Amino acid sequence: MKCVLVVDDDRDYLSLFGNFLLQAGFSVQCATSGDEALSILKDSTIHLMITDLNMPKMSGIELAKKALIIMPRMPIILHSGSISPELTLLAEVVGISRVMAKPVNPGAMLEAIRNEIREV
C-alpha cells in the first residue's frame, strides 16, 4: 500500500482529506506543520507528499525544498487557493511535481496522485 503524507495547518481539512485518501486505498500520514512533516519523512516510508502552500513558520515551498533533501525522488503536490504562473514556475524550479488548486477536485487529485506514484 502506498503511503501519502498530507500537510496542512487546517486540522479539519486535514482530517477530511486524510479520510478521503484512506477510502481511496492509500495509507495516510498527516502533519499540521512543516516541522512535523519533516520528522515523519525521516522516520517513515512516504511515496508522495501533498502540502498546502500557506502555513505558519514554513511554507509549502520551503517544506518541499527540505523534504527533497531527505527523499530526493519523492513526488510532491502543492495545493493552494491562489495559483499563479509565478508560483507554478517557482514550484517547478524547487522540484515540486504538480501545483493544484484548492479546494481540491477529488477526481483530479486522485488521478494526479496515482500518476505521480506510478512515475516513481
Rank of each mutant, 00 (worst) to 15 (best):
V6Y: 15
D9Q: 00
D10T: 05
R11D: 15
D12K: 04
Y13P: 02
Y13I: 09
L14Q: 06
S15P: 07
S15N: 13
L16M: 13
L16V: 14
F17T: 09
N19Y: 05
F20T: 06
L21Q: 01
L22I: 08
L22P: 04
S27V: 09
V28M: 09
V28D: 07
C30A: 12
A31C: 01
A31N: 00
A31T: 00
G34L: 06
E36Y: 00
E36S: 00
L41R: 00
T45R: 04
H47R: 00
H47I: 02
L48M: 07
L48Y: 02
T51R: 11
D52L: 07
D52N: 14
D52H: 06
D52W: 11
N54R: 13
M55V: 12
M55N: 12
M58I: 11
G60M: 02
I61R: 02
I61F: 10
K65S: 02
L68D: 06
R73C: 10
R73W: 02
I77R: 01
I77S: 02
I77Q: 02
G81V: 05
S82F: 15
S82E: 10
I83N: 05
P85V: 01
E86M: 11
L87T: 14
T88V: 14
L89N: 03
A91W: 05
E92I: 00
V93T: 14
G95M: 06
I96A: 03
S97W: 03
S97Q: 04
R98K: 15
M100R: 03
V104H: 03
P106S: 09
G107V: 10
L110C: 08
L110S: 03
E111M: 05
I113G: 00
I113D: 01
I117V: 13
R118E: 15
E119T: 10
